[in-house]
């Protein structure tokens, strides 16, 4: 087998890993905030991603691509809030295992509902005209659409970071992650906060779903395919940590890309080797929060 690691190849695979990783990161950020604040291992996150993509294929012929990048997160965010308020809220005080089982079951139900409504057949989804094709970056050529995914998710994640770090709401969320009881004692309505955070997580998942549609197509089990790597990213990054999710996502994407280039049969295993190595060196992940689910 030929090994070809020229500068062009390195830059292209780096970019490609970045694009792959950003989608994982978008999923992982939602998962990790929900996990940190509510101690909920949310398996519905995958189907919320699926619903985002199906919102796109349903409304695409009326509205085009761009408006749905706003509409899908709003719709799916509301669905997420409804799920949280109606089903997850009653069992917060139980063992985290309860919410895990509940969300796991719900993910299966929603996937089958998607099959009933939209059918089993994968839907074709092309990138918007302006982003189709390739762009010459000097050192290499790259897919315009994936470049857009990198830029868009970077901006989006920056906004999420601003929300968490620079607003009162974000401060409350972070405070809740560190010490939930204290937040309640200070008189903050934690139920409302939980619903809102769940909604934000769902909205991010929906955006990831819309963004991935032109790359991976739209089909009922798409959520199941992304949920495992997203959890791996959360664990590598450290549960409950925003920056952990970002670093974990990029690490997984880039390592995977380069493994294909160097020795492709390892491409799927390498992610789990990475997971094992990180956990051996840092049992809480790269920047995990002390005491979470411990």
């Amino acid at each position: 087998m030929h090994l070809n690691l020229s500068g062009t190849v390195i830059v292209t695979q780096l970019l490609n890993g970045f694009a792959l990783g950003m989608l994982f990161t978008l999923m992982a950020v939602g998962l990790t905030i929900i996990l940190g604040l509510m101690r909920v291992i949310n398996f519905t996150h995958g189907v919320l991603y699926t619903l985002g993509a199906y919102t796109l294929i349903t409304l695409h012929k009326y509205l085009g691509f761009w408006p749905i990048l706003v509409i899908a997160p709003i719709c799916v965010g509301l669905i997420g809030m409804a799920i949280e308020a109606s089903m997850i809220r009653p069992i917060y005080r139980r063992d985290p295992l309860f919410t895990l089982l509940l969300t796991f079951g719900m993910a299966m139900v929603v996937e089958d509902v998607v099959r009933l409504v939209w059918g089993d057949i994968p839907y074709p989804m092309a990138a918007p005209e302006i982003l189709s094709g390739i762009v010459n970056l000097g050192v290499c050529v790259f897919s315009k659409y994936r470049l857009f995914v990198i830029i868009f998710t970077t901006i989006l994640l920056f906004l999420v970071w601003l929300l968490l770090e620079k607003t009162a709401l974000g401060k409350t969320i972070l405070a809740g992650t560190f010490d939930r009881e204290m937040v309640v004692i200070l008189g903050i309505k934690i139920d409302l906060l939980f619903t809102l955070v769940f909604g934000i997580g769902a909205a991010l998942a929906a955006i990831a779903g819309v963004l991935s549609a032109p790359i991976r197509g739209v089909f009922p089990p798409m959520g199941t395919d992304i949920i495992m790597p997203s959890f791996v990213v959360v664990i590598i990054g450290g549960m409950g940590s925003f920056w952990g999710a970002v670093i974990g996502g990029l690490l997984v994407g880039i390592v995977k890309s380069f493994t294909v280039e160097i020795y492709s049969p390892m491409a799927d295993v390498i992610v789990f080797i990475l997971l094992a190595v990180v956990l051996l060196v840092r049992p809480r992940g790269i920047s995990g929060i002390e005491g979470l689910l411990e």
Binding site: N4, T12, Q13, N16, I215, G217, S257, E261
Partner: peptide, 21 residues
């Protein structure tokens, strides 16, 4: 060159970029 991909692979970008090289 040849890359084996598991059944159900959704992203072939790294393989395609490798082939391009």
């Amino acid at each position: 060159g040849n890359d084996f991909t598991p059944l159900g692979t959704t992203d072939f970008s790294a393989q395609l970029l490798k082939a391009r090289g």
